[in-house]
């Protein structure tokens, strides 16, 4: 089962401004588990690419908020999730594009982000 996770940056990830609760290691863990991962932010596409290059994370996509439908059409997954901290700029865009939506404090509890072998993942 393939899942695609779209991460907002500011207010969501630890490298955001303001910082959010999701860590880059969580992204790496999800990617290691075979998830499609990428960022969807108001930051420029070039700025997002530079950010991932700086942190040596090979994301599968970068996008702006209106590009979520395009991301869905590009990646064939069994589930699409967007994680963000804004009702208007994350939740609304995510639901309109057919994504499931998670607030950052909900997302950190997902087993996706637990290392293999953690008790919670069996």
């Amino acid at each position: 089962m393939t899942i695609l996770i779209s991460f907002d940056i500011d207010g969501t990830l630890e490298v955001g401004d303001p910082p959010g609760v999701l860590t880059l290691d969580m992204m790496r863990i999800a990617q290691d588990k075979g998830f499609w991962i990428g960022s969807c932010s108001d930051r420029t596409l070039s700025g997002q690419r530079d950010l991932w290059e700086l942190h040596e994370i090979r994301v599968d996509f970068v996008a702006t908020k209106p590009m979520l439908p395009e991301i869905m059409s590009r990646f064939k997954a069994d589930g699409y999730y967007h994680i963000g901290d804004r009702e208007d700029l994350d939740k609304r865009y995510a639901l309109a594009a057919g994504f499931e939506f998670l607030w950052p404090h909900e997302a950190v509890l997902m087993p996706w982000f637990l290392p293999e072998g953690s008790p919670e993942t069996g």
């Binding site: 420029t44 596409l45 070039s46 530079d50 702006t64 209106p66």
Partner: peptide, 11 residues
């Protein structure tokens, strides 16, 4: 961060 033509057009 630079602002490229692509960045501007997809905002």
């Amino acid at each position: 961060e630079r602002l490229t033509e692509e960045d501007y057009l997809v905002a």
